[in-house]
Design a protein around this nucleic acid. Structure first.
Length: 919
DNA sequence: GTCCTGACTTAGCATCCGCGTT
DNA sequence: AACGCGGATGCTAAGTCAGGAC
């Protein structure tokens, strides 16, 4: 093994010699120099902004602030990294070699024998968390629970509308509803998406529930060139005329934020959000057998409906506002029933599916050498992973009941993990402390003098740690550099892998060090001890002929060696906090493997553009379906499309109580007549989503009806889960899943805003336009960040400066007036006489100072505006980089103004896009 | 159809680092 | 040199979704 390792690292070293940025390696065209700098000049037809009828009522911020604005908030780099996943053990590869017999099923800190002593934020049990099944059923119980009376009313409403209208032609119903809506709320655009959405008024070709045999995907496909293999056509699509549809948007976020909720929001509020009751009980599986969800669907005729030009590509959120136009708007039918080979998308096996994924959407994504069915690589060489250094005891004694305590190194290590977190918010979380104490107690032993956390004083360790940090900070530049180099030397060989002969960066080659679990929100496992990972926990995946990495810890061996070329991970171990989940080591975001799938992701969402009209028409029709499952699917899809909600998988009880679309609870969506829905829930990462949205009347009524007979903690969509939803979506477009809508809406919003709002000016002004669009997307996706601790100081500092400048300005004006009268200037505040200037000179000074003040005001506004908005996440994950690259080329903006080094590397595949590219 | 597993993407926060200002 | 700040990078938690077993 040692020999092998030698060989191995030697190989790596040789390759290391090339100094070239690894990044652009497989990119045919990308050159080291930024191709964009010499941007192709091309006049861009700038579109004019109408109004961006969009409204995102944004939410959050730890301190309740809620703000937005533009200013570049930069971007984070992405690292492919370890990730967890459920499951016990990744599929066994036939060729796996047991390198070591040891398979210690992670001795994870077991079930906390938590005594209930401490107050812990346990989910409040919902009295009645069983979702009742049918509306009919529910009416029986209508007297229970808080929501009852309002629900009764709602039911009434529903009965009126739904039952009575069910038989009417959809169009008549909808248009009626809508016109009402429009007259009442013509200019009301509460949030993200503004108003009532258009699908409604799309002309319907036919509404029979008939053509079931036709794959839905083909029914919706409109454009002749759309389809699974459309990447090409998309690419050539670049020049197609852009429809004028966008022009009605243009209002700024600010203007639009009409309905911004007045509540001040907190990120991860403790217990103040209605997500809570989010029932402790796992949601029973649906299925009342009432209706097949996927089988028979959409009764929309295969022909695509018209109106192609108008709104299809407008994010629904934007379209909302224009809404309410006559149903018969153009009918320049561009119908075409291109039958999509949806079968080709059906997975026959995992492997073949992977293969499909590889090749299906992207024209230029070359197959990896040797890649066949599901194959991700042919040869794979790497050096495994690097472990954190063993614990070095510091010997600083903590106090228990005022007395110093002796701890073994192991006990001290865990005590130190806690001590260094003394200044974090976790100290205010009883659950954190409880979980910590339970795990620490196991290490202390039953008889240990330390029994109660309350009697512990960790400050000596905390202070020691602070001093260490300080020392590190105080080191000279040389010392720091030396240290860095030393580290680099140790890590170098782990930093890259050779995939099919090409050197690629590894994303996370460092094994996670032990620590206390920092779950987000009210995670039930926060504070638990994340034990140290050993080589015997780690499974390595590597090419058959590659040398097996040497185990860096003497006397230890890897758990297992695999040679599975259908996956991209290089190593994994079981997550000690949740042993059935894994932590993976992947290649970095800049690798071609990642780049390829990134590109495929965007190609897929571009494909949605060609289907979106049909999809919207279909779900609009189903808002009033008699089949409740279908109705729920329709409404859920609408919300996902309009609000960019996440799908919302089921969660276990040992995870934070957060929701997505399918898992929304009754209490998370409050209908406010006539047609406003008020959302309030904790989403991914326990980020609060709060929004008031005006929706189409049928949606509003459907939501009211879904709530009937349920209590707050019950599932709003009780007939639905993500697999049903996605199965349905796949019928509409090959490969379509809920998350594609997020990417689609994000990217199309960027594309449209950039093209609408770029109006010449210098580079700085154009960058501002970009940031504005970026911000809009971040708001749509609800990407938030906590307000920095120093935010308020920064603002007040700016205010002071502004005031000071204003004082100066006043003085200058006086001087000007005096100069005009031929008098000398007054003495300065320091008592010294000022230079005697002519009026023009004073005027120039005034202009300069005014400009300075204005700039500072702008900076302040921007800072305030973006304090809770995270721009980076969308840039990294949702915005097709080709939009940005093409825009930069068109407008001669150096790409570096928009993408940092990491993003340039990550998006190497997008750099050679034509300037005329449109999403 | 449901549950579970496995693999991968998406996410916010922490920390590092470099630069301009004092 | 110290300081403050913001951007870049690192870290790892928390999602999504496909596919297989039952």
């Amino acid at each position: 093994m040692a020999v092998q390792a030698c060989v191995n690292s030697k190989m790596m070293d040789e390759i290391d010699d090339d100094d070239e940025p690894i990044v652009f390696k497989r990119s045919k065209t990308a050159s080291k120099q930024n191709p964009l700098n010499s941007a192709t000049k091309k006049s861009s037809s700038q579109m004019h902004a109408g109004q961006s009828g969009k409204q995102v009522s944004e939410v959050r911020s730890p301190n309740g602030q809620n703000s937005i604005s533009q200013k570049a908030k930069p971007v984070q780099s992405t690292k492919a990294s370890l990730v967890k996943s459920p499951a016990a053990s990744p599929k066994v590869s036939s060729s796996s070699v047991k390198a070591s017999p040891a398979v210690s099923p992670s001795a994870s800190p077991t079930k906390a024998s938590i005594s209930s002593a401490k107050a812990s934020p346990v989910k409040s049990p919902v009295a009645n968390s069983k979702p009742s099944t049918s509306a009919a059923d529910q009416s029986k119980h209508s007297s229970q629970q808080n929501t009852t009376s309002s629900l009764k009313e709602e039911k009434q409403l529903i009965n009126d509308s739904e039952d009575s209208e069910d038989d009417k032609p959809l169009i008549s119903r909808l248009s009626a509803g809508l016109s009402k809506q429009s007259s009442n709320h013509a200019d009301r655009r509460p949030n993200t998406s503004g108003l009532g959405s258009p699908p409604v008024q799309k002309p319907r070709v036919k509404c029979e529930d008939s053509d079931d045999e036709i794959p839905l995907s083909s029914k919706f496909q409109l454009k002749p060139n759309a389809g699974p293999s459309t990447s090409k056509s998309h690419d050539f699509d670049e020049n197609k005329p852009k429809s004028p549809k966008l022009q009605q948007n243009g209002s700024t976020m600010k203007d639009n934020r009409i309905k911004k909720s007045s509540t001040v929001l907190n990120k991860r509020p403790v217990g103040e959000v209605k997500s809570s009751s989010q029932s402790p009980i796992k949601r029973p599986k649906l299925n009342d057998g009432s209706s097949p969800i996927v089988g028979k669907q959409v009764s929309v005729k295969a022909e695509k409906k018209v109106n192609e030009e108008d709104e299809d590509n407008v994010p629904i959120s934007q379209r909302m506002k224009k809404s309410i136009t006559p149903v018969n708007k153009s009918s320049s039918a561009k119908q075409k029933v291109t039958k999509v080979v949806s079968s080709s998308f059906k997975k026959t096996s995992k492997k073949s599916k992977k293969a499909v994924k590889k090749s299906k959407y992207s024209k230029s994504s070359k197959m990896l050498p040797g890649s066949g069915e599901g194959q991700k690589w042919t040869t794979l060489i790497h050096n495994g992973v690097i472990f954190p250094p063993p614990y070095k005891p510091h010997g600083v004694k903590m106090l228990y009941k005022g007395q110093k305590v002796d701890l073994t190194p192991e006990q001290e290590e865990v005590a130190t993990m806690f001590a260094v977190m003394l200044d974090t918010d976790y100290m205010n979380k009883p659950k954190f402390k409880e979980n910590f104490m339970n795990d620490w107690r196991k290490i202390l032993g039953k008889k240990h003098v330390i029994q109660r956390l309350e009697d512990c004083d960790f400050t000596p360790i905390y202070e020691w740690h602070q001093k260490e940090k300080e020392k590190k900070k105080q080191m000279s530049a040389e010392e720091k550099k030396a240290l860095r180099e030393e580290k680099l030397k140790q890590e170098e060989k782990y930093m890259s892998a050779i995939v099919d002969g090409l050197k690629e960066k590894v994303g996370n080659f460092r094994v996670e060090p032990p620590g206390l679990f920092r779950g987000r929100g009210e995670h039930p496992k926060m504070g638990k001890l994340k034990r140290r990972i050993q080589p015997r926990d780690i499974t390595i995946n590597i090419g058959k002929d590659a040398p097996i990495p040497e185990c860096p810890i003497p006397g230890e061996r890897w758990k297992e060696i695999r040679h599975d070329n259908t996956v991209t991970w290089l190593a994994f171990w079981n997550d000690p906090i949740n042993p059935k989940e894994f932590k993976y080591v992947f290649l970095a975001a800049s690798s071609s493997l990642k780049g390829q799938s990134d590109k495929e992701k965007y190609e897929k969402s571009r494909m949605l553009k060609d289907y979106i009209q049909g999809i919207r028409a279909a779900y609009t029709k189903d808002f009033a379906s008699k089949d409740i499952t279908r109705r729920q699917i329709a409404v859920a899809t609408y919300l996902i499309d309009k609000l960019a909600l996440r799908a919302g998988n089921e969660k276990d009880d040992d995870e934070a109580d957060t929701v997505g679309c399918c898992t929304l609870k009754v209490e998370n969506v409050e209908p406010m007549p006539p047609n406003i829905l008020k959302f309030d829930f904790l989403g991914k990462d326990s980020i609060r989503y709060q929004n008031e949205v005006e929706v189409e009347l049928p949606v509003f009524k459907a939501i009211q009806q879904f709530r009937i007979g349920k209590s707050g903690g019950d599932d709003l969509f009780d007939k639905l889960d993500t697999s049903k939803l996605n199965a349905h979506l796949k019928e509409l477009m090959p490969g379509l899943t809920a998350k594609v809508f997020r990417t689609y809406n994000a990217s199309i919003t960027l594309d449209e805003m950039l093209n609408r709002e770029t109006k010449g000016g210098d580079v700085t002004e154009k960058v501002v336009v970009y940031q504005h669009a970026n911000k809009e997307v971040a708001i749509i996706c609800n990407h938030q960040r906590t307000v920095s601790k120093s935010h308020s100081t920064q603002i007040s500092r700016l205010n002071e400066k502004i005031e000071e400048l204003k004082g100066i300005l006043d003085g200058l004006r006086t001087d000007l007036a005096r100069a005009k009268k031929g008098k000398p200037p007054l003495k300065g505040s320091d008592g010294k006489p000022k230079k005697n200037l002519n009026p023009e000179a004073w005027e120039r000074k005034i202009a300069q100072t005014t400009a300075k003040i204005e700039k500072m005001e702008r900076d302040k506004e921007t800072k305030e505006d973006l304090k809770t908005v995270a721009l980076g996440t969308s840039k990294i994950n949702y915005l097709d980089p080709r939009i940005t690259v093409a825009w930069c080329k068109r407008h001669e903006v150096p790409i570096e103004k928009i993408f940092n080094k990491s993003l340039l590397a990550k998006f190497a595949w997008a750099m050679d896009v034509s300037p005329s590219f449109r999403f």
